[in-house]
Simulated scan of single mutants.
Amino acid sequence: MTSNVPFCVPPLTGGVPDAVVKVLDSRWLTTGPETAAFEQEFADYLGAAHVVAVASCTSALELSLRAMGLPAGSPVLTPSLTFCGAINAILHAGHRPVFVDIDEETLVPSPETVAAAAARVKPAAMILQNQGGYPVDVPALTEAAGLDRSRVVEDAAHGPGAARGGAPVGSSSYAACFSFYATKNMPIGEGGAVATSDEEFADRVRAMRLHGMSKDSWKRYLPGGSWRYDVKAVGLKANMTDVQATIGRAQIQSLPGWQEEREQIVARYDEALAGVSGVVLPQRNSLDGVRHAWHLYQVRVKDRDAVGDELQAAGIGTSVHFIPANQLTAYKEIVGADECARVPVTDRVGEELLSLPLYPGLTADDQDRVVAALAEAMRTRAMRTRS
């Protein structure tokens, strides 16, 4: 019997087990020297001035909003086509999400959709997501929102490896938030980071990731350190551990090669699916200096749920990114029906998106199985439509 093709198999660098054992042997398991080294190495990879490692991308988003010091209940623009964690971050920071519609081709907000949302409210801040790995044009969207760059958070959970204008995503952002979840381009298992060009902002996030304490335990318990600390702002318990950080340090070494492999897999999908009727391929890199991270390979198909079920029956793992936030019960109750009706393109496109397997190590034979199963599902649907 042919084995299944899972939606994702996280790649692991060969040096990970030894690195973890080394940290375990050190007996320093929480935030410490490995976390500091990881922050510097990830900053070097991005070309960013500062990186603060945290527990997750969701906590990175919330910490970034908290560190901005916005008035309670401030309106924050966000695409509705995003993970629920991004909406929760706005709410947990004490603010109000305002939904922004997307461009149908790129699946990210456009200057026009941002301007339309900003016209309804006077936004205090904005979160922008690199959907699937497509790098948003942060300066253009910041201008469209009428905001200063210090009030814009870039959700780069899908972003490592992406670039715009030749500059890596996160290299010059005021606040770019990354994810190291198990399915992401650089998997650690859990974890996140905030990259920023502003030293003062980095210091605020660094303190707030550990309750707002002025010194973490590593600094307090170093030789000559003091147990005394202050809390100047209320924070979260959202620090990264040295066990996570040492995995991240090993994984960074393989990230460039993994990104090249992702691009090769995407090129094979593009070629193989180009002639499959009813399948809309993902957004293209039509602009000079734009490099897609290819975290996801999102196709669009009619009758998406039924197509996904047929692929599952054929042993092909798929996923959906995402159920639009405006369609989820809790957010409908919080923001109201009128606000949830403001994103018609998101509602329409969101019913068609289907993410196919894409990860380093996905073999050509497995890709052929994915393509064959999708083509058969589309043929079956076309036959039923004709009959």
Rank of each mutant, 00 (worst) to 15 (best):
V121S: 08
H158W: 03
P139S: 13
P97I: 11
Y134D: 02
R151A: 12
A156S: 14
G73R: 11
M126P: 04
C84V: 15
A89Q: 01
L128F: 08
E154C: 13
R151T: 04
H92M: 11
E62Q: 15
N88R: 13
S56C: 09
F83L: 07
T142I: 12
S74I: 11
V152Y: 03
V98C: 15
A115R: 14
V121L: 09
L128R: 06
M126K: 06
S110I: 08
R66A: 12
V138H: 12
E154I: 09
G94P: 13
I90M: 05
G73Q: 11
D101T: 11
L65T: 04
T82W: 09
L63K: 00
G94H: 14
A93Y: 09
V108H: 00
V153K: 04
V114G: 06
S110R: 04
E112Y: 04
E105Y: 05
Q131S: 14
V152N: 07
A125W: 04
A72Y: 11
A72K: 15
L61G: 01
S80W: 06
T58F: 01
T113N: 07
V54A: 06
M68D: 01
V138I: 15
S74P: 08
A118F: 06
D155V: 08
H158L: 03
T82D: 08
V152E: 00
L128E: 02
L147V: 10
E62C: 10
E104R: 13
E62T: 10
L61R: 02
T82F: 11
M126F: 02
V121D: 06
A119W: 08
D148C: 12
A116D: 09
A93C: 09
V98A: 13
